[in-house]
Write a protein that binds this DNA or RNA. Structure first.
Lengths: 166, 166
DNA sequence: CGCCTTTAGTTATATTATAACGACGGACAG
DNA sequence: CTGTCCGTCGTTATAATATAACTAAAGGCG
């Protein structure tokens, strides 16, 4: 009798995504982390989405690979990916996006805490900025009043260029 | 027979808070809004707290005034106060703080969307900045890529001056 | 007053996130 | 080899935050 095997990432993820996952796996290995099967699937699902995805959206999709996935399954993977800097949490949306720069970032630990996000309120897409001027303005303002910043959340809501022309 | 009356704001709020509430009431009246009893209590509770407060913390305290308060009671008041610009929501904390500047702000609608917040991870206090340099850096960066911003969330986590010296 | 709009009460439920505990598995020292 | 440790995962339950939907009351205004 033929039992139906659950789908693998090969069936669902684009070649581009799988390549990114391979690079992420190497990145983790180089930073004392393991991109396990579950973590890889979660990162893949986030990467394939064109918009931020909520934890329970991820859970729904993850269940097509692992029928017994539960909330802690997803949240544990998300915690790991956040710690590695491979994804970001968008606070205003309570949702997650892949990090556009982490794998290309040459300066250790230098990318995650400086990113800014542009949220289009029409199409819902989020794009990531790395604008030194913003980071500097924040740093300077904090320094001027004796505050020592460790991380800044910058989320800019508005209408993206594409949606303005429609 | 003597029935015990529920406490009024007079019993709980400091004179300074009550004065602020009176000013807020006038502010609302001038902007086609009514600072009703419930809204006034919620704003008072937020104002008295030295730190950001969660919606359910507010609910707990509100119940000492109104025994039948429920989640929608609080969320409706919060929605109103946010719309008036009298409080802010701190996304990273899922909590609310009073607006330090709204009542003193002379330019209509000009204060709310430019504020930045400093969150001390040691003592938990949040202070509000209004630093034109940050707002300008954000505006310029967005403009450069054709994005039209409507609102920017800037939340800076770190250690405040006071906590650094301890 | 009578009408209309805003506000509030009430119940139920949706959405997001974590606690707690046991099991499994690989790495590594002895 | 084998026992131990640590990181990961499965599982169940529950906490914390937020909203839907409907009804009723209260206030402004002709």
């Amino acid at each position: 009798m033929l039992t139906t095997a659950p789908p693998t990432e090969r069936d669902q993820f684009s070649p581009g995504t799988r390549q990114l996952l391979d690079r992420a796996s190497a990145y983790c290995a180089a930073h004392a982390g393991r991109l396990t099967e579950t973590r890889r699937l979660v990162l893949g699902l986030i990467t394939e989405a064109s918009k931020p995805v909520g934890a329970y959206d991820i859970l729904d999709h993850l269940r097509s690979f692992q029928k017994n996935a539960a909330p802690p399954t997803v949240y544990r993977a998300l915690d790991f990916l956040l710690a590695q800097g491979l994804i970001h949490r968008i606070e205003r949306l309570t949702a997650f996006v892949g990090c556009a720069h982490r794998l290309d970032c040459t300066h250790e630990g230098g990318c995650g805490h400086r990113a800014q996000f542009l949220i289009c309120s029409v199409c819902g897409t989020v794009s990531e900025l790395e604008e030194p001027g913003i980071a500097r303005a924040i740093h300077d303002a904090a320094k001027a009043i004796g505050f020592r910043p460790s991380h800044a959340t910058v989320e800019i809501e508005g209408v993206c260029a594409q949606c303005q022309t429609r």
